[in-house]
Simulated scan of single mutants.
Amino acid sequence: MESDITHRGDGVAVLALRGKLNMVTAPVVRETITALVGDGHSRVVVDLAEVPFLDSSGLGALIAGLKSARQAGGDLRIAAPSEQTRLVLRLTNMERVLTPYDTAEEAFARA
């Protein structure tokens, strides 16, 4: 799993992931989001455009990041999920909690 972090001018941190988000890579993603929030970036977008696969561990990492961001007064949103990721969100009813946005720019456009 590779990742890039971009800090936008509006205070939003964008974490762009590349590779599978599974039980092997989920702990790193969880730690990265926790570190972002700990550094004062409580509004986080996780860009999943280059994540072809998400399992329950990956979903758990995103939910943990969401909880961390919300406890800090912010939010975590996901952008550009693949069809497989959308299916996982639908099957687990997590699409209500982690609403997918088409792009990272749209995720906090109205916030």
Rank of each mutant, 00 (worst) to 15 (best):
K67Y: 07
V14T: 08
I78S: 12
R43C: 01
L59F: 02
G58L: 02
Y101A: 09
V51P: 00
R86H: 13
T34R: 12
I5E: 10
V28K: 12
E2S: 11
D55Q: 11
S3N: 14
R8T: 11
E106K: 15
A80F: 06
A61C: 07
R86S: 14
S82I: 13
A111C: 15
V45Y: 04
S68G: 10
L89T: 08
P27S: 08
A61T: 02
P81R: 03
A111H: 15
P27Q: 06
T34G: 03
E83H: 15
G11S: 14
R43M: 05
V24L: 06
V44I: 09
V46K: 00
T103P: 14
V44H: 01
M1Q: 07
L59V: 03
E83G: 14
I5T: 14
D47L: 10
V46F: 06
R30H: 10
M23L: 15
T103E: 14
L98W: 02
M1A: 09
T92R: 05
E50M: 10
N22Q: 03
L98N: 01
A26E: 00
L48H: 01
E50N: 14
I5R: 09
K20E: 14
V28F: 13
R86I: 12
L21S: 04
V44Q: 03
L98D: 00
N22E: 04
L36Q: 04
R43S: 02
G9Q: 11
K20P: 09
S3D: 12
T103R: 13
P81N: 12
G38C: 14
S42V: 03
G38N: 13
R70E: 12
A69G: 06
V97K: 01
H41N: 12
P27T: 08
A61D: 06
S57F: 02
G73H: 02
L91F: 13
A107G: 12
E83L: 15
R43N: 07
V45Q: 09
R8N: 07
Y101T: 04
T103F: 04
T92D: 01
G19T: 07
L87M: 15
L21R: 01
V88E: 08
V45N: 05
V14K: 12
L17P: 11
M94A: 13
H41D: 06
G60W: 05
G19A: 15
R30F: 00
M23K: 07
V88T: 10
A80C: 09
V12R: 06
T25E: 08
I78Y: 11
L59Q: 05
D39K: 15
D47K: 10
G73D: 04
L62A: 04
P27H: 07
D102I: 08
V24Q: 07
L98R: 01
I63W: 00
A72C: 09
T6I: 15
G73F: 03
